[in-house]
């Protein structure tokens, strides 16, 4: 299942990221490749962090989904 909205990384422990979504929904996702840090907005699919979303585009993304 793909989460089609950007979530924000709140914690990274080894390769495991904690990702926060609106309504305080929290998901765990694995970082396989790429460099991510706390605060980054990301797209998660099937438990994997697949892409970073620049902060400036998050609002546009959420608007697109609405």
């Amino acid at each position: 299942m793909c989460l089609a909205i950007p979530g924000q990384i709140t914690k990274i422990k080894t390769c495991q990221a904690t990702v926060k979504y609106p309504q305080n929904d929290i998901k765990q996702a694995k970082i396989i490749t790429g460099s991510y840090k706390t605060g980054d907005y990301v797209i998660v699919q099937a438990g994997l962090v697949i892409e970073k979303v620049p902060k400036k585009q998050v609002e546009m993304w959420n608007k697109f989904i609405q």
Binding site: K30, Q57, M60, W61
Partner: peptide, 24 residues
Amino acid sequence: YAPPALKQLCRVERAKIIDVQSDC
């Protein structure tokens, strides 16, 4: 109306597999 990061993911790309893992 789509942000550039989304349009990037929407593209169909030709890609070479460099590793096969259990989940991806």
